[in-house]
Deep mutational scan, measured.
Amino acid sequence: TTVHVNGVTYHFPNPEEAKKFVDRVVKEAGLTVEVKGNQWDVE
């Protein structure tokens, strides 16, 4: 699973890890998340 955060790419072994990361980032920074298949874009 690939997560893009403001142009930076993070790779995770599974969607659960990616979701935990995204949830944390979104809570801390108040960002928006767009999910496209296995790819997350966070802005």
Rank of each mutant, 00 (worst) to 15 (best):
T1R: 04
T1N: 04
T1C: 15
T1V: 15
T1E: 03
T2A: 05
T2V: 11
T2R: 06
T2D: 04
T2Y: 14
T2K: 05
T2F: 14
T2I: 12
V3E: 00
V3C: 13
V3M: 02
V3T: 01
V3H: 00
H4I: 15
H4D: 05
H4Q: 12
H4P: 01
V5R: 02
V5M: 10
V5K: 01
V5A: 03
N6G: 08
N6Y: 09
N6A: 06
G7P: 00
G7N: 03
G7Y: 02
G7V: 01
G7H: 02
V8C: 15
V8M: 09
V8R: 12
V8A: 05
T9Q: 06
T9A: 12
T9V: 12
T9R: 08
T9P: 11
T9S: 08
Y10S: 01
Y10P: 00
Y10M: 03
Y10K: 01
Y10W: 03
H11D: 03
H11R: 04
H11N: 04
H11C: 15
H11S: 06
H11K: 05
F12K: 00
F12W: 01
F12R: 00
F12E: 00
F12A: 00
F12T: 00
F12L: 01
P13Q: 11
P13L: 12
P13W: 07
P13S: 13
P13N: 12
P13R: 10
P13I: 10
N14W: 01
N14A: 02
N14T: 12
N14K: 02
P15K: 09
P15L: 12
P15H: 10
P15D: 12
E16Q: 07
E16G: 04
E16S: 06
E16N: 04
E16F: 10
E16V: 06
E16P: 01
E17I: 03
E17A: 09
E17N: 02
A18T: 01
A18I: 01
A18W: 02
A18R: 01
A18N: 00
K19L: 08
K19N: 04
K19I: 05
K19Q: 12
K19D: 03
K19A: 08
K19T: 04
K20P: 01
K20C: 11
K20S: 07
K20Y: 05
K20A: 12
F21A: 00
F21V: 00
F21N: 00
F21H: 01
V22R: 07
V22L: 13
V22D: 01
V22N: 02
D23S: 04
D23P: 01
D23W: 05
D23A: 08
R24C: 15
R24G: 05
R24Y: 11
R24K: 11
R24T: 09
R24H: 07
R24Q: 10
R24F: 11
V25A: 04
V25D: 02
V25W: 13
V25F: 13
V25G: 02
V25S: 03
K27A: 10
K27N: 07
K27S: 08
E28L: 11
E28P: 07
E28N: 07
A29T: 13
A29V: 09
A29F: 15
A29I: 10
G30T: 06
G30Q: 07
G30F: 06
G30D: 06
L31I: 12
L31P: 05
L31R: 04
L31C: 15
L31N: 08
T32H: 11
T32P: 06
T32V: 12
T32K: 08
T32C: 14
T32A: 11
V33R: 03
V33S: 10
V33L: 09
V33E: 11
E34H: 12
E34V: 14
E34W: 02
E34A: 11
E34P: 12
E34G: 09
E34Q: 08
E34S: 13
V35H: 09
V35T: 07
V35G: 05
V35Q: 05
K36D: 14
K36E: 15
K36R: 10
G37V: 13
G37K: 05
G37M: 07
G37Q: 08
G37L: 12
G37A: 04
N38V: 04
N38Y: 04
N38I: 04
N38L: 05
N38K: 03
Q39M: 10
W40N: 07
W40C: 13
W40P: 08
W40A: 08
W40G: 08
W40Y: 10
W40K: 06
D41S: 09
D41F: 15
D41Q: 13
D41H: 15
D41P: 10
V42E: 09
V42T: 10
E43R: 11
E43I: 15
E43S: 12
E43L: 14
